[in-house]
Design a protein around this nucleic acid. Structure first.
Length: 298
DNA sequence: GCGGGTGTTCACGC
DNA sequence: CGCGTGAACACCCG
């Protein structure tokens, strides 16, 4: 039994996530503080598609470090082993403290698992790291260093916008006829941006999302790279974004705030924040909702 | 019942 | 091969 309800083990939900680079980085930083140095007792998979690899090999291994590659989190363990986690569209990592109390604190609930909990990492003191994932696109992989390095996702991953230069970024766009928005969503071109930050970065750079990537001048490419840095750093400062429907808000009240600072994302019909007379339009690009101001984005 | 949703990958056609 | 499109994965919600 994973949680003993009769003995009133209350869950304290510490961390949740929403999955673009700033959300993943927020989770990684929080995880770093609480799970480094902990020894894994077991990993339980509650869904056949979630845990890939042999959970038995990480028993007794200690977590030494957390890393992030684009939107993927990697836990480095003793003995050349790693746990790689991709949250995809709906994954969350939650730290559950094992506490026995008379009454729950505000924001705590009885210690049964949520129906979307797909995997549980158990630690020696009874604390647990939960992987919740409504849509089951996400995964938890148990890998050796060699297997980690050969992951196709990692091999194809381009630089994060702060790890490259305007010139290098411009060069990366130069051969591409695809729309600039699709280019910056392509993790092999530049990593980290998802639909929210791609939309917001193009607004900040004043570039129309449908512009062919190769049509950007060096100056414009630099503006896009710099805007990606700005919006994603801002996202990290605000602790990422949390869905407005409340579906993803933490039980303990902790949640991201970037959703209150969207520049164009989800602002269809609203006046442009530049007050230039433009009204935010929504179109489809590569099957994804794309928001832009027709007045300032050229 | 349908369409849309913060990600990634693949199949197909040109 | 590049590129565009659409679908697939699976679930919830309006």
């Amino acid at each position: 039994m994973l949680v003993n309800i009769k003995n009133r083990h209350y869950i304290k939900w510490y961390y949740s996530s929403m999955p673009e680079l700033p959300e993943v980085e927020t989770v990684r930083r929080q995880l770093e503080r609480v799970i480094v140095g902990r020894t894994i007792t077991d990993i339980t998979s509650l869904h056949p598609k979630t845990v890939i690899g042999n959970p038995v090999v990480v028993k007794g291994k200690t977590i030494r470090k957390t890393r992030r590659f684009g939107k993927m989190i990697v836990l480095d363990l003793d003995g050349d082993l790693h746990i790689a986690v991709h949250l995809k569209m709906s994954g969350q990592l939650l730290f559950k403290k094992n506490e026995i109390k008379e009454k729950p604190d505000k924001g705590e609930g009885l210690g049964n698992f949520h129906k979307h909990t797909r995997a549980v990492v158990g630690f020696a003191d009874g604390d647990q790291l939960l992987f919740n994932d409504q849509r089951v696109f996400g995964w938890v992989r148990i890998l050796t260093s060699e297997e980690l390095e050969s992951l196709p996702f990692l091999r194809a991953l381009g630089p994060e916008p702060w790890d490259t230069t305007d010139g290098e970024f411009h060069k990366r766009l130069s051969g591409k006829r695809i729309a600039i928005k699709l280019a910056i969503l392509d993790q092999s071109v530049v990593s980290g941006a998802g639909n929210i930050y791609a939309n917001d970065a193009l607004w900040l750079a004043k570039i129309h999302p449908k512009r062919p990537a190769l049509s950007l001048t060096a100056r414009e490419a630099g503006a896009v790279r710099s805007a990606l840095v700005t919006v994603m750093e801002e996202g990290i400062e605000y602790g990422g974004s949390t869905g407005q429907d409340g579906k993803y808000v933490h039980v303990n009240g902790e949640s991201g705030q970037y959703q209150n600072h969207f520049k164009v994302y989800d602002r269809k019909g609203e006046p442009c924040l530049r007050h230039d007379g433009g009204v935010i339009e929504k179109i489809k690009l590569g099957g994804r909702g794309t928001y832009f101001c027709p007045s300032c984005q050229k």
